[in-house]
Measured scan of single mutants.
Amino acid sequence: DHDVVPEDKFQETLHLKEKEGCPQAFHALLSWLLTQDSTAILDFWRVLFKDYNLERYGRLQPILDSFPKDVDLSQPRKGRKPPAVPKALVPPPRLPTKRKASEEARAAAPAALTPRGTASPGSQLKAKPPKKPESSAEQQRLPLGNGIQTMSASVQRAVAMSSGDVPGARGAVEGILIQQVFESGGSKKCIQVGGEFYTPSKFEDSGSGKNKARSSSGPKPLVRAKGAQGAAPGGGEARLGQQGSVPAPLALPSDPQLHQKNEDECAVCRDGGELICCDGCPRAFHLACLSPPLREIPSGTWRCSSCLQATVQEVQPRAEEPRPQEPPVETPLPPGLRSAGEEVRGPPGEPLAGMDTTLVYKHLPAPPSAAPLPGLDSSALHPLLCVGPEGQQNLAPGARCGVCGDGTDVLRCTHCAAAFHWRCHFPAGTSRPGTGLRCRSCSGDVTPAPVEGVLAPSPARLAPGPAKDDTASHEPALHRDDLESLLSEHTFDGILQWAIQSMARPAAPFPS
């Protein structure tokens, strides 16, 4: 592969990997390779389809078979030569091979799209000592099968071997295949498990690692696999990028399955594409389908809103127990993405979901129960707010008499603000006073009005108090039968009158 990737590009890729991570280095090298001529790309395919690569990765054979028959990708048995050289000459001794072996032994695996480039050397060096003999053996194999790289107009793939297949390693990572398949204008990513390549439709969760975000852009890794992070704060999961590491605690105790298979379609829109997988259930989501939507993949363990709600429900009964003089119970939860139609709101002032922060849900004790107040519409209280300059209440639009249902020339009671006709409430011909108009209920007259088809109010509507207090003497005590009587009149003013009279009014101040 030294004929494909020059030394300066190799060093530039290593520097970019240390600065921005393996995914960015892979993407940059792939983009550079696509700008080369067809001879360089053909050399790339020839390096990929060597015999030892085909033996190690069985899924490469179907890719090789898909090439046109007129494309010669065979390799000479006596060494490598550029395709432009007409004579089959043995190339001179390859010093770059020693360079590659020494550099890969030092860096474990470079971040390139060629056999030198995919593992994360920093994480491997940190986690190597417990498994040094086995990992050293794996390093000797890295130059042979560490990076199976493929690129063409139909298929483009980048393979990364790992030393996680050490025997006896619980939940060992089998390997990473960062794979971009450009077929019919689409893009897919796969993962390699035990020599087999699994596409998103049959993606397997190998051991402790999972394909957290099938994305090839942005600074985030394709698999949430930063070796420096180790395990999740809650004892979460091992990262795919942690090559040759000792077994780590796999999943939280509440995880239903340690080796679950995540779905390959969004649980909201039932469509495929780039998904984020939940650590607590097999569901996966688009970032845009979450509520609120996320802009980037959160670091650490992530769970959907259903799993978060289940966790909150487990903690909430203990938080609601009476604990005198104790601060509110704080339950730190990872930043969760909410699927459509589901929402768990945190306290005000918290950062938005999706940031690399930890939301704190506070379970406050329930407030003391209070008697429910009568629910009145805002339009129902409008007549009470229509007060004239002299303190006389004006008529609201649409006000109707509670007896006849007519809204023409209605009066407004100064005591309960109900609309009424003087002739309907006082049919006996009582003279109307000039000021202080009161309806039949507030004036103490319980004589029913002779209106055909309208039920008369119940005599129990009024329960006047002592006459010594004029204001308190007109406080009506309405009961269920009074409400039914008012409802039978089918008037809004009657219902409003009952609601206003049912509310307690402050006692009249004593004259000074």
Rank of each mutant, 00 (worst) to 15 (best):
residue 290 L to M: 15
residue 448 P to V: 14
residue 410 V to C: 12
residue 251 A to D: 11
residue 501 Q to K: 08
residue 263 E to N: 13
residue 276 I to C: 07
residue 251 A to R: 12
residue 281 C to H: 07
residue 285 F to Y: 11
residue 292 P to C: 10
residue 284 A to G: 09
residue 307 C to Q: 14
residue 315 V to Y: 09
residue 399 A to C: 13
residue 319 A to F: 14
residue 277 C to Y: 10
residue 362 K to D: 03
residue 275 L to Y: 04
residue 242 Q to W: 15
residue 422 W to H: 07
residue 253 P to S: 08
residue 497 Q to P: 04
residue 464 P to G: 14
residue 259 H to M: 15
residue 454 V to W: 05
residue 507 A to K: 02
residue 249 P to A: 09
residue 362 K to N: 02
residue 305 S to E: 08
residue 324 P to M: 14
residue 460 A to E: 10
residue 510 F to W: 13
residue 305 S to M: 14
residue 341 G to S: 13
residue 283 R to K: 10
residue 433 P to Q: 10
residue 325 Q to L: 12
residue 457 P to W: 01
residue 353 A to G: 06
residue 453 G to P: 10
residue 465 G to L: 11
residue 418 A to E: 10
residue 508 A to H: 09
residue 435 T to N: 11
residue 404 C to T: 02
residue 440 R to V: 03
residue 326 E to N: 09
residue 296 E to Y: 14
residue 464 P to Y: 11
residue 476 P to W: 05
residue 416 C to Q: 04
residue 380 A to I: 14
residue 451 V to Y: 09
residue 332 P to D: 03
residue 421 H to P: 02
residue 328 P to T: 12
residue 312 V to A: 06
residue 326 E to P: 09
residue 295 R to G: 06
residue 329 V to T: 09
residue 370 A to C: 09
residue 477 A to W: 06
residue 423 R to Y: 15
residue 401 C to T: 03
residue 489 E to C: 02
residue 348 P to N: 11
residue 382 H to L: 13
residue 359 L to W: 13
residue 325 Q to S: 10
residue 342 E to V: 15
residue 398 G to Y: 05
residue 323 R to C: 11
residue 423 R to G: 13
residue 363 H to C: 14
residue 455 L to F: 12
residue 331 T to D: 02
residue 335 P to N: 15
residue 343 E to S: 11
residue 432 R to G: 07
residue 452 E to R: 06
residue 261 K to N: 09
residue 264 D to Y: 07
residue 425 H to F: 03
residue 352 L to A: 03
residue 322 P to H: 11
residue 494 G to F: 01
residue 316 Q to M: 08
residue 445 D to L: 09
residue 473 S to F: 08
residue 298 P to G: 11
residue 307 C to E: 15
residue 454 V to H: 08
residue 241 G to Q: 02
residue 416 C to L: 02
residue 262 N to S: 09
residue 276 I to Y: 13
residue 476 P to G: 11
residue 483 L to S: 05
residue 366 A to Q: 03
residue 355 M to P: 12
residue 277 C to Q: 04
residue 394 N to I: 10
residue 463 A to T: 07
residue 289 C to T: 13
residue 474 H to S: 09
residue 368 P to S: 13
residue 364 L to N: 02
residue 263 E to V: 05
residue 303 R to A: 10
residue 255 D to G: 12
residue 423 R to C: 14
residue 355 M to R: 10
residue 421 H to T: 01
residue 469 D to F: 14
residue 460 A to C: 12
residue 380 A to L: 14
residue 290 L to R: 12
residue 424 C to E: 02
residue 308 L to Q: 11
residue 254 S to K: 04
residue 372 P to I: 15
residue 434 G to K: 08
residue 425 H to T: 12
residue 497 Q to H: 13
residue 400 R to W: 14
residue 259 H to Q: 04
residue 256 P to R: 12
residue 468 K to I: 06
residue 478 L to M: 06
residue 267 A to E: 08
residue 380 A to M: 10
residue 336 G to K: 14
residue 330 E to W: 15
residue 485 S to P: 04
residue 422 W to F: 14
residue 249 P to M: 11
residue 242 Q to K: 11
residue 344 V to P: 13
residue 307 C to I: 13
residue 365 P to W: 15
residue 332 P to N: 04
residue 395 L to N: 11
residue 368 P to F: 05
residue 349 G to C: 07
residue 459 P to C: 07
residue 417 A to T: 05
residue 334 P to E: 15
residue 256 P to F: 09
residue 262 N to W: 08
residue 277 C to M: 07
